[in-house]
Design a protein around this nucleic acid. Structure first.
Lengths: 165, 165
DNA sequence: CATTTACGGATATTTTTTATCCGCAATTAA
DNA sequence: TTAATTGCGGATAAAAAATATCCGTAAATG
């Protein structure tokens, strides 16, 4: 039971994009440079975020990615679901129907209680992630960062941002 | 983010073993037959459960597996952790240290707030599974099963169980 | 029109999951 | 003691998924 590393990258990416002025963008290449992760693979994650409506993409010269939603309306679950999908991690193969003592169809009108218990646990997980907004993440990161680092980040943004026309 | 199918098998297995008389066992082969799953692979899962102290193994003729704990002291989390490990599913690679604006070591005394949020969500998941005891699972399964199916199961157990000497 | 950049698809590599097999050790019953 | 049975651990292999890269195309800019 593992999450792809794209999730970590995507959260950092969104936290960075939230710092941009409205309408401004950062190119995928620049984002990969900022995070120091493989550019073509990050590009794939960005495309998934774009399809999910979490970031907005602008093509062409001076194009790139920006946040498509207000940071307070974007949760860690939104980002996770965009990259990992919403399928449950517990896969019920209806083992209860198997074997010499398998249940008949009529006995399976309710979901298997085992699967139901796992689905409920996953709902707890999902809700916990849904309660964490991007604004919370940004606050946490800002609390740990030195003033010098914040300055460097602002400078880097100024050097790499593509401003709206 | 997926759970191995061994988890499903293992829960069904434990639920079945809980029905055995004290000290009695079922061979791995018989269990695979009951669940209709690949015997050598189920055997691997059983070995892991044995190492975790969830089932007790007895070798030799008339050997097999029995539950090592009382069903009310065994949770779905115990079984899941035995097979999947306790490592978090979110893997923090300390991206915050990366790139041109990476955080200095001194800024990373606290865990990354992103990772912390995921770890907390996983704790919710874990706790939800830990609250479900094997007795609860058995009750749920029994509620759905017809009287005829329960009879067949008891008969099958009688035909396959290895009684203690 | 030339340049830049995201998009989608195809492809390759690595890792994980799923699955099988075998020799050994342990246990029991004859 | 012997023979049969059964779990254990390691090695191996096949299948699937995650990770990573590349390229042609479309779109936007100047």
């Amino acid at each position: 039971m593992k999450l792809g590393k794209g999730v970590e990258w995507a959260v950092h990416t969104c936290a960075l994009l939230a710092l941009l002025p409205a309408g401004a963008t950062l190119a995928a290449e620049a984002l990969a440079d900022f995070l120091d992760v493989p550019a073509p693979y990050l590009a794939k994650q960005l495309q998934a975020l774009s399809r999910a409506g979490i970031v907005s993409a602008r093509r062409g010269a001076a194009g790139g990615y920006g946040l498509a939603r207000l940071p307070e309306t974007l949760s860690l679950w939104d980002i996770t679901a965009a990259l990992e999908g919403k399928a449950p991690s517990f896969r019920c193969t209806e083992v209860r129907r198997n074997g010499p003592c398998g249940a008949a169809a009529a006995e399976c009108s309710k979901p298997c209680p085992i699967a139901a218990a796992f689905y409920e646990a996953e709902a707890s997980y999902r809700n916990a992630l849904a309660r964490v907004r991007l604004t919370d993440v940004i606050q946490g990161v800002a609390r740990d960062a030195s003033a010098a680092r914040k300055d460097r980040i602002n400078q880097w943004i100024a050097d790499n941002v593509a401003l709206p026309t």
